[in-house]
Amino acid sequence: MTQPQKATEFSQSIRGAVAPLLQVAGLAKSYGARIGCTDVSFDLFPGEVLGIVGESGSGKSTLLSCLAGHQRPDQGQILYDGQDVLAMAETERRRLSRTDWAFVHQNPRDGLRMGVSAGANVGERLMAIGARHYGDIRAQATDWLGRVEIDANRIDDRPAAFSGGMQQRLQIARNLVTAPRLVFMDEPTGGLDVSVQARLLDLMRGLVRDMGLSVVIVTHDLAVVRLLAHRLMVMKSGRVVEQGLTDQVLDDPQHAYTQLLVSSVLQV
């Protein structure tokens, strides 16, 4: 098991002994005259989970898609593991997004191949990086279905036959099978029943800890970030209005917008 080692790596990272995995500086993206996001800067360290919250249109999804390479920002710099992502050849960037990076979509249909079996969905990234042994691929797919709590005998079923929560867990397995270091998540619990959300949150927390994942998670659900994110960034109108330790931002918000956001959440 590599878990203690991963945790050690995290411990080193939070003591500053490890360099940031992702460094973002002055990132901006406009759609004509309308600002998508602007002046976004942050560092993300190994093993760290950064939550980005804000209302619809606040620029959080634009920011995520710029970070993940789905859109090209107009300005700014993104360094991954010291390499300039925006200057990278497309081959290299796409290779990263198949190996070191992962992207979990809000709608699992956007992240899954609905026409092939669960096993093929999980195996795809392995085959993309050159796995050519059917038995090994299948064994790894079986292992990952187990880790996301999908019964192994569903391995040959297509995702269309799965519930929404199972599809989302399958999407996570499909993304994590190559042991990525950086995971982007776009509202991963949106559209799921509350009971299913809890299971997914528990699963994600365990995977983040055990695999030492760095995560950027975009959501409008403050409860989700409180449980998952180490740090929080609050966005409004394309700008970061406040960032800090998650519980501090939620319990002692400094910016007017964050205060409004926090006080607007219904208590149960």
């Binding site: 939070i14 500053g16 360290f45 760290e48 180490h230 740090r231 501090q248």
Partner: peptide, 8 residues
């Protein structure tokens, strides 16, 4: 302290 130092 920075958030990371507090987490540590």
């Amino acid at each position: 302290a920075t958030p990371r130092q507090i987490i540590a």
